[in-house]
Design a protein around this nucleic acid. Sequence first.
DNA 1: AATGAATGAGGGTTCATTCAT
DNA 2: TATGAATGAACCCTCATTCAT
Lengths: 187, 187, 187, 187
Amino acid sequence: MSPRRDPEGRRRAIVHAAVVEIAEVGIGQVTHRRIAARAGVPLGSTTYYFPTLDDLVSAALREATETARAQLEAWADELLASDDIAGTFVDLARGYLADREQALLEYELCLAATRTPQLRPVAQLWMDGLRGICARFTGGPERGFALAALVDGVLLEALVTGDELDAGGLRAGVEALVSRRTAAGRT
Amino acid sequence: MSPRRDPEGRRRAIVHAAVVEIAEVGIGQVTHRRIAARAGVPLGSTTYYFPTLDDLVSAALREATETARAQLEAWADELLASDDIAGTFVDLARGYLADREQALLEYELCLAATRTPQLRPVAQLWMDGLRGICARFTGGPERGFALAALVDGVLLEALVTGDELDAGGLRAGVEALVSRRTAAGRT
Amino acid sequence: MSPRRDPEGRRRAIVHAAVVEIAEVGIGQVTHRRIAARAGVPLGSTTYYFPTLDDLVSAALREATETARAQLEAWADELLASDDIAGTFVDLARGYLADREQALLEYELCLAATRTPQLRPVAQLWMDGLRGICARFTGGPERGFALAALVDGVLLEALVTGDELDAGGLRAGVEALVSRRTAAGRT
Amino acid sequence: MSPRRDPEGRRRAIVHAAVVEIAEVGIGQVTHRRIAARAGVPLGSTTYYFPTLDDLVSAALREATETARAQLEAWADELLASDDIAGTFVDLARGYLADREQALLEYELCLAATRTPQLRPVAQLWMDGLRGICARFTGGPERGFALAALVDGVLLEALVTGDELDAGGLRAGVEALVSRRTAAGRT
DNA sequence: AATGAATGAGGGTTCATTCAT
DNA sequence: TATGAATGAACCCTCATTCAT
């Protein structure tokens, strides 16, 4: 199945399997064996490419963040091109929650970062990215931070309650925070 | 310390140790042994009072939520008595973050609830409580939800980044969401 | 439920529960807790009446043997009154196997006796009883022993295979071993 | 003793240790740790080769049965070559009982099979083997079954009572059951 | 006399990690 | 380079037994 001679591919396959596995069972429950099984590689490969399980988990979370980063950029593009900021935010959030497990992983990473210093920068990446985007649509950085927090909070709540996204709340919040002038100036 | 024969006290001591331990190392890393050591009781006691580790963890999270709930009620009182809603929110959030580990535990519980059905109601309690309070200060339920999400987001971000509370963002967000009339009517 | 003041009754209830429990799960899997639960008495009662689990198991096996002994006597009566020894043996064996678990317990006791000296006499009781009965229907003690062994073997095989009693084999064996003259002399 | 890298040998050593251990303490009392100690391998090895204790026990019993099967075949050969069937049966039974613990294990397996379905086929192997042999020396299958039961019963009784084999009883039984013609035809 | 509380030993099992090959 | 074998620590949990009440 996996190419005999493609170390980089192997590595990526393992990391990817780790991401999926973490998303599914949570950081605390992930094991070498599970990842190896999921990736379809021998157990030894996981420790060969990653000396420690922590290393592997870190790599997985890093990759997950990369994914999120790309997503954030897509958000920025869509938001800039939209003339209904609030509506677009709702659409984007809904899209984000579509892959619930992936989204969960993101938040789990954030919490894990609070106890694992090496995860800090990874988590920071997401936070900063979201804040950066939000700040473009509000009068000042403070409101931008508030908007980012709002989005984070709405997403978290949806994940926790298991309900649909609270579109009404999100829309109301965005509208209250987004600068009229900015929105108007764009038309 | 604990009297030889005080089942209820023993039980509480174990639960409390579990709370502290979970706050410190995370739900996924907590073990009978750690809790027993922290509580100063023999290993067997933990399984005597709680047949399963899951039971013990549940009890701990339930207790933690009870604490949070009490805190929320204190919030409500302070907010109702205040004529600077935003400023009071900031103070309260700061107070909440003062015990970082306890706060962290709260969020960990929320995330864990997504994968452990039995934890759902416990997490819901917090979410509902916060939303209920917030709704009192906004024009409608949607803005109330948005305010709750904002608070949740701000707290989460502070926990994750390890920075101080983003007071400016919180204040700006609250001001944008809180109903003028309510604020005005209270002067 | 159980009378407040009836130590002997309590004791019997525990022993009986132990018998049933052993029959159900096997000697090696029986525990104080299981017996207490089955008997509907507090855990402490089991150790109060029987210092050791071994003591309790022994008592249970002793009781089981007593039951078997009574059964053997019934066999003797029926056989003596019968003019179709082989057919009666078949009927009796079938009756014995009707309560499979009880029968199993008997054999388990026998095997356990090989490793637990204190169980020896209990097991011996059954063996001797069966032999004694059988000897009455054969020409000499040797054939009597053979008949007893045959019965034991047939019962064991039925238990192990889970099949019905091998009536044909048993009948053939009995007929070959039973003394014609004895049978004839009784008409 | 055992080479560093010899998985098959290791596996066999563990299984063999399990057989011996079961013979000594009984199925219900056997543990990973005991087996590991007896085999002179680390604890982890037992679970590495056999995911579950049940698996290990099954393997051990299977092996024991294989041994017994080989023995049965030897019996068949000797019996066919003999002109004193009864005497040969006695010799064979005595030989079988010479290794008391191995014999005990056999019967324990049979009883355990009644409660552990996966053990059924293993136990059946022994029963069928013995019956098959016996049937060759009797007039019909029914007497064959009876003979097998007789042998089983005699062996069981010897094991349980701890006495010598009841040679007289066995001889008498065999003589009563073995087909004259077969015996005669062979002279 | 009777019992719930308490405990520590030990059981099965999992797993990160090391290492010979 | 790559991997299956191997290992021991640690985990959760069960339980016989002891003991204060």
